Computed example of a mutant assay.
Amino acid sequence: MSVARTHLPPERSASTIAALSVASTVGIGVGYPVISLLDQLAGLRAAYGLGFLLSIAALAIAWRVLPVEAPGERPRIDVAGALLLALGTLGLLLVLAQPSLWATAWLAGGILVGSLAILALWAIVEMRTAAPLVNLRLLGQRPVLRANLAMFIVGIGLYLLFSLLTRYVQTPAGAHYGFALPGVAAGAALIPFSLMGFVAGKSLPYLVARITERWAYALSTMIAIAAVVLFVAADRSLLAVLVSIALLGFAVGGVFSVMPKLVLVGVPGAETAGVLSINQIVRSIGFSTGSALAGFLLAAATPARSMLPTSDGYITAALWALPPLALSALIIAVRRSPRRPALPSTAS
């Protein structure tokens, strides 16, 4: 995205960045069924091997086609900042993704406190480094801060619902709900997710030109809310659940396509990569939080000596996605107008 903003004219860079933002959404609909099929045919190691080969292919393509920067002084790499940020976010994601750690409260608490301390040290280092990995003063500006906060919150709601839907369609037949779809079929159920994400990526730039980025973002979150409502109202219908998955795909594609423009308001071109990278990290932490919350809610809805949660547990868990979705829309859509200067008083 940073390369697109630097090397393309403004009228092309915006649409290219939007397309890059939703590329991962489109890839989900292809990756899930392909990897599931390979897992069934050749085993899990073969599936991971394909992922590794695809990563190598992506690196080779990037090396071949991305433009070469103009010759000049080589940029300084903030190695200390990179290591501290990686270590701090690793600790946060670990305590979110591994709920079993909380069985030993002192261990999980220690990792959490240590991670926050490392991130605080990272912030101090970044503020004092001549060439920081991330310009924290820039991240503190109101538009950038608001966009990152909304991205974190909406990520919780979107991935909470995504985790529920992908698990629900695979629920075994003995549970008396769900559809017992095998791995490949469950992966194919995400094709509507990717198709509608692609549609969102193509249509949102035209919509933004008419209703602005803020309202396009709010519309995307409202569509995600509609996906929740549809799932809650008609969870026993496979068609309804697939439509809910499709609506979620459009919402994810819409949020991803419009977020770069929201977070880059007033950001200099040289800071594009740093600001977008932090936004990606915030997105990942939001996703991990939503996934962990889905697991926690389903575990709470699982009766003793049972392997599966109740059907009502899925409904309750899906309803938990509504507050973060609505809150993120409000954060972006409701913008405080600048304070008007007071009029000078006139003597009578």
Rank of each mutant, 00 (worst) to 15 (best):
I281C: 11
A47R: 03
G157Y: 00
G286D: 00
Q40N: 14
Q141T: 15
V282M: 08
L298C: 01
G110C: 13
E11I: 03
I278W: 02
V265Q: 15
G187V: 02
M127S: 14
A224E: 09
A189M: 10
L83H: 04
S237R: 06
A246E: 05
L248K: 04
N135G: 01
A333Q: 05
L44V: 15
F231L: 14
A58Y: 11
A4P: 12
S328R: 05
V208F: 00
T316R: 15
I61Q: 11
A321P: 11
I245H: 06
I156C: 07
Y168C: 13
V68W: 11
E271R: 00
A19C: 09
A150C: 02
A123L: 02
A317M: 00
T129Y: 02
A326Q: 10
A46T: 11
R167F: 13
A270N: 13
V184A: 13
I77C: 12
E73W: 03
A103V: 13
G187M: 01
S328D: 08
Y168N: 11
A18G: 07
V228G: 10
A130C: 08
Y177P: 01
L322N: 03
T104E: 13
A304S: 15
R340M: 14
V199P: 09
A304N: 14
V282L: 12
T171V: 15
T104W: 09
I331Q: 04
A270L: 13
V134G: 00
V255Y: 00
L116I: 15
F179Q: 05
G49V: 05
L239N: 10
R210V: 07
S15A: 15
I332Y: 07
A342R: 10
H176S: 15
P268Q: 09
T289Q: 02
A216P: 04
V65M: 02
L83N: 03
A86L: 03
L195Y: 05
I156Q: 01
L308G: 01
R305G: 13
P341Q: 08
L330G: 09
G109N: 11
P33N: 05
S194M: 11
Y168R: 11
R339N: 10
I156K: 04
